[in-house]
Design a protein around this nucleic acid. Structure first.
Lengths: 165, 165
DNA sequence: GCCAGTCGCTTGAAACATGAAGTATCTCCG
DNA sequence: CGGAGATACTTCATGTTTCAAGCGACTGGC
């Protein structure tokens, strides 16, 4: 007898709902990790995750970023970035400056304090991730990296909105 | 929470940073999908994603859920579930009732309107997911489901907080 | 029964998030 | 030039989210 191809296919479970199941698993895992990182950022650095995000974007752009570009990279809305940068400015991590070329544009960049602080955060952050994923085989991690990339690309190809990345 | 943190560690393949890279990819993908679902839920049903989440939890519990259990399952804080259920109650999707056994306890359950509405939402939602993941090989989806499960378990094993699931 | 502790939920303050409307500022066509 | 339109950011209304504090209701040891 030949291998039952049907069985192989249905072996991948209920077929139709696999995508939904995957999404729910990705979502819950993502929430779990986010919550943990949030908790640790708060406890050890008194910072929030969105703030960490903004800082990380600015960290590798010595010349700073326009707010629009910043909001695009951090995947938050323009309206949102205003308040985030405002708070980071008040805490002395970020400086805002208007362009003379184009008075509409504001550029945000890290202060020295911001740079020093983020460096420490980033190191801890990376270690946290190694800890949390310690029980996952590196081969599996590698595979996930690749396959999640495929997922991301597929999603991008099917967005209803106009803008891409 | 963000995404283009990915570029920070784009330097090498098999470094120690694979876990970090995986996290950033999971996070950005999750955010991308969330935003898309949010957009569609808003456009087609005038609902929010957290609301959809709450409704989905209640949908398969005919007898309703205590708010504490609801908040645990939906992975939101107790304080959060109060407001969410409140708004859903105002819109007529959910009914709240106090237990006579234990006057501290409130049970939330779907109304008929809530049940009907969610059924339509869920069907659309499932289709959206199939669309978005259409370019991913079903075998890959299956593998991801398994491996993301391993990730989730590893994370659970390394939480700093006390509570488990 | 008493009352200290716990439990279940609500409230409050602050931050984050979105979409939409508003305000300057720039651009470019006529 | 001049003004319509586009652009960059801010503001606003609403909703989500967290943590911490509050409040009423239960529980168990005495």
């Amino acid at each position: 007898m030949s291998v039952d191809l049907e069985a192989i296919v249905s072996d991948t479970q209920d077929g139709k709902k696999q995508e939904l199941r995957l999404w729910l698993r990705v979502l819950s895992t993502s929430k779990l990790i986010s919550q943990e990182i949030r908790r640790r950022l708060r406890r050890e650095f008194d910072a929030t995750l969105p703030q960490f995000d903004i800082l990380s974007q600015l960290y590798r752009e010595k010349d700073g970023l326009r707010l629009g570009e910043l909001s695009r990279r951090a995947m938050v809305t323009n309206g949102n970035v205003t308040g985030l940068v405002e708070r980071l400015e008040q805490d002395g991590y970020v400086a805002r400056e208007r362009l003379d070329d184009d008075r509409r544009v504001t550029v945000a960049m890290l202060t020295d304090k911001g740079r020093r602080t983020f460096a420490a955060m980033a190191e801890a952050h990376e270690q946290w991730l190694r800890d949390m994923l310690a029980d996952v085989d590196p081969i599996v991690v590698s595979g996930l990296l690749t396959h999640m990339g495929q997922v991301k690309q597929s999603v991008r190809n099917h967005l209803s909105g106009e803008g891409d990345d």
